[in-house]
Structure formats: structure tokens, C-alpha cells
Amino acid sequence: MSEINVNIKDAVLEINNVSVAYNKGNYAVTNVSAAIKRNKVTAIMGPSGCGKSTLLRAINRMHDLYPNIITEGQVLLNGKDTNKMSTIMLRRKIGMVFQRPNPFPTMSIADNVIAGYNLNGISLNKTEKEEIIEKSLQDVALWNEVKDSLNQKGTFLSGGQQQRLCIARALAFQPEVILLDEPTSALDPISTKKVEELLMELKEKYTILLVTHNMSQAARISDNSMFMYLGELVEYGKTKEMFINPKDKRTDEYLTGKFS
């Protein structure tokens, strides 16, 4: 496995020997270690079923919700062991965007944006609310499209708009890291392009970890890439280098389309 050279100070996340098992002994991710660089887009790619989403969900401990899933190993966030943090603190610092757009259908667009604050019982005054809503929606280039319908339910929005609303929801809570689990797989090409452009802008302020089954997407927008296969991290390096000169045979075969 080729290690990317990351100065520890640059690493937001350090994944140390993480394994995830669905039911005892049935490993979906085995012994993955990697350091994720700050303010970069890092793509995790690989064929479906390779464990890339499972790894992503281990980072913000989503697996804790399911008693049959066992996570081993350690993830450090800014040098602190996330297993020792409360999930509330952890998820406050690490936002997540899901495969299918999932805005809360019972909440207005505005309430969706500030859902993180409401769910965590954080009091905001009116101007703070307005500022967060406007800024977050502007960050995802949705402000102009929805500014007149902030108090309506978001269900009339297109799939792409809904996904951007979900990204705004994650951004609004001002996390350090954003995890995205195949965020464009349910979107049309035009919406996909918008989301991709957005992600490239967002890395100025956030660290982005993106799971994708689409190699060209990884090539277009990521700085660094991981290639996973059968639960293992096969290769991790600068995206350009990996695409031009993959070090592992399996990476090469995947990138040249021998399997997918």
C-alpha cells in the first residue's frame, strides 16, 4: 500500500487500522489506515461492495446506530480519538451528505438549513438565523432559487436542488469535515456538474471526503484518491499520479475498466 505523505499537522483525520464487520466475522472493511489532508478533496473509489461507504460511515460513527455492526480501530479528529468523544461532538464537527437527497419533508427550506441547530437545541436569534440561512444557501448557490420560498416545504425542489439543500444543511452547522456518500449518484448530469463545482469551491473552507463509484468524477474534482477493493485500501495517493501511474495492478485494472 502506498502511503501519501501527510504532515501530521495537515491531517484533519487519521484513520488507524479501521475494520468494520457486519455481524461477527463478516468484514466489509479490513485494516484501513490513512491520513486525510486538510482543505483537500479526497475521493474514495472502488467497485460497488468494496466497503467505501462503510469506511466513510465509520468516520462519524454512523455504525453505532446498528448494534450488529462492529467497528474496530481508531479514527483521530485533530489528533483526538473519536471513540472517546461523544457522538454529538463528533458529528457536530463532521457533517454528512447522503446518496439520495434527504431533506426533512416536514420542515420548511429554512428549517432544513438550520436543522443542525434546532436538533441540538442551540438557541439562535433572528438575525443569526437569517445570516446562517442566507450564507449557507449562497454557499451552495441555491439562495437565488429559493430565497422567495424559504418558508415552504422543500419537496417541490428538483433532485439536484434538494441535494444542494442537504449540503447547505451540513454546511450551516459549520463542520470541519464533510463526508459525502456518492452525493451525485441520484442526480442528472447538469445537477451533478453543479454539485461538483460546488465541492471544489468548498474545499477552501472544509475538508471533503467523497465516496464515488465514478472514476471520472474522482479525476475531475479530487486532490487525493483512495482505491478500495474487497474491503482493503489498495492504493492512496495524489489523484493525478494515481490515474497516470497506478502503483498496484488492481488499481490499474480498475482504472482501465477491466472490472467495475
Binding site: R91, M96, R100, N102, F104, G116, L119, R169
Partner: peptide, 11 residues
């Protein structure tokens, strides 16, 4: 996924 979205925000 709605429940997970809320959990991912620290709920």
C-alpha cells in the same frame, strides 16, 4: 435516510 440525516447532525 431521514433518521440518519438527523443523526449525522448530532441528534
Amino acid at each position: 435516510d431521514l433518521k440518519e440525516a438527523a443523526y449525522s447532525l448530532g441528534a
